[in-house]
Amino acid sequence: MKWLASNYGLVWELMQAHIALCIPPILIGFLISIPIGWVANRYKLSRGVILLVLGLLYTIPSLPLFIFMPLVLGTPQLSSLNVVVALTIYAVALMVRSAADGLSSVDKDILQAASAMGYSGWQRFWRVELPLSGPVLLAGLRVVSASTVSLATIGSVIGVTSLGYLFINGLQRSIPGEVITGIVATLLIAVVFDLVLVLIGRLLLPWIRQDRTSARAARRRAVLIAEGAR
């Protein structure tokens, strides 16, 4: 507590850097995942191949991936782009499963009814498939958000500023309070991100409130998918 009181400014600065590091991977990851998830869901063969490749990407440990990035991207070693791209890869690897899962959770009879009413494939996707898979997508995005916020701390190990700085500095100077502050601040960002996502979900998918059970089931599924217990 004493440490926090005298270093309030530093913590706030690091939190801002941390947030700036986390938002692009979460957003870009989400946007990339939807089309990939759609392709994965559409064809049986592509589903196997895509999920396999993403599974392997997700298997690469974060610290090595951060270290590989400058070589792959040609960026300077201290560039925050290394961490952003690596976190985006993880976000995609996690999110595509949820996207494919969400799209396949839409009742096929509803899709046929939409086609029968004259929706084109494109219209059907935007007006029927995407909104109806919303709760599952949202649940998946919440998992991605929590995971990204936590992983971004590792960026500090390769010198990219994030809340992880408090861990490393706290270790060097043997200040448990600093490390605890870092953990709490990371969790705080994760909780705020989560609340924002839930709120966005409430606004965009108002029917979730009526249908609590299926929203809860979607959350459960997404968490289990991420834990490999699908």
Binding site: V143, S150, T153, I154, F167, T186
Partner: peptide, 27 residues
């Protein structure tokens, strides 16, 4: 305790492992 288990697993993702490691290391 099903929902509790889900919240636990879901929430745990946000816990930074590096921070936990270093905190335990100091302790």
């Amino acid at each position: 305790g099903r929902d509790l288990a889900v919240s636990f697993s879901g929430g745990f993702r946000a816990l930074p492992s590096l921070g936990v490691l270093i905190l335990l290391g100091l302790g």
